[in-house]
Design a protein around this nucleic acid. Structure first.
Length: 282
DNA sequence: AGTGTCGCCTGAATGC
DNA sequence: TGCATTCAGGCGACAC
């Protein structure tokens, strides 16, 4: 499940092999993923150069020389696999989009569950396009801070864990990093989002940044559905404190030596949350 | 506007 | 062994 660090890692892995190269053609092997592919995608991009790659929230953006941007959201199970020789690639199950570069290399978009999305837009539409207009600030940018988080959550009665998954509050945080950041900042996932103290918003904002940065430094987290574009594995999953660790000892408590507590799993908004009942108080 | 629920989709895990 | 059921979850659509 690619969240911000995974998409950032994919972007960094792809960029050296794609930037500056030109599109020969794009072959679609089905009409849609979560949404239909953009009409005439191949025709609109044929012959254009990829100027650079970037990321916004969990979207990977390809900036083209003709002023267009292709945005890919990998959903739950999306993968991008680089191919040195596209002619030698025989499409596998769930290879939905094949992007051929003029030098013979290319990339394959594989998405078993098809929760992913591909958009094509003009460069100046990135802030107004329906998929992007409501996105909150990038957590690793200067636009994000404790006070900003506090302002955006003012009056919100929803649990803080649920609010962190809302992409309009802060962009790019998903289920793994929401639980990890709340644990790191000592905040209970069921705490009402609008009712943290100023110090707690500061700690939470700092923890979100820290956990995301550490995950990026580790190449992201490899779970059931995510691999890096070179086929290699991220390894931040070995640094999880609470995610998928129900019943195990809380590492913070364990380090303290005295208090023994086990990580608990609850369901909020239909999704699993993990927390330490000792470290994280309402 | 905020909040909650549903549905999309497949593979892995579990149950009988 | 094999078939059926359950679960995972980002996000758009929708109802209230």
């Amino acid at each position: 499940m690619p969240e911000l660090p995974e998409v950032e890692t994919i972007k960094n892995g792809l960029a050296p092999f794609m930037e500056g190269r030109a599109i020969e053609k794009i072959v679609l092997r089905r009409p849609d993923l979560r949404l239909p592919f953009p009409p005439n995608l191949s025709k609109k991009l044929k012959g254009t150069r990829i100027d650079h790659l970037s990321r916004r929230a969990k979207y990977l953006l390809f900036h083209f020389s003709n002023g267009k941007i292709m945005a890919i959201h990998l959903g739950m199970s999306g993968r991008i696999i680089l191919q040195a020789d596209m002619a030698a690639h025989s499409p596998a199950a769930h290879d939905h989009m094949l992007l051929y570069l003029t030098d013979g290399s290319g990339m394959v978009l594989n998405d078993a569950r098809r929760f992913g999305m591909v958009y094509l837009m003009e460069a100046d539409e990135v802030s107004t396009h329906p998929g992007f207009a409501a996105l909150g600030p990038e957590p690793l940018s200067n636009e994000f801070s404790g006070p900003v988080l506090q302002e955006r959550l003012k009056g919100r009665k929803t649990p803080i864990k649920v609010a962190l998954l809302d992409q309009s509050i802060v962009a790019g945080v998903g289920n793994i990093y929401a639980s990890e950041a709340l644990h790191q900042s000592g905040i209970h996932p069921q705490k009402e989002a609008g009712k943290l103290t100023g110090a707690q918003y500061e700690r939470l904002a700092a923890a979100i940044r820290d956990v995301l940065q550490r995950a990026i430094a580790s190449g992201g987290s490899t779970l059931k559905d995510y691999r890096r574009s070179n086929g290699g594995l991220g390894y931040f999953q070995h640094s999880f404190s609470v995610y998928e660790k129900a019943g195990q000892a809380c590492p913070v408590c364990a380090a303290g030596g005295k208090v023994k507590s086990a990580i608990r799993k609850i369901v909020q908004g239909g999704r699993a949350s993990y927390y330490c009942p000792v470290c994280q108080k309402k």
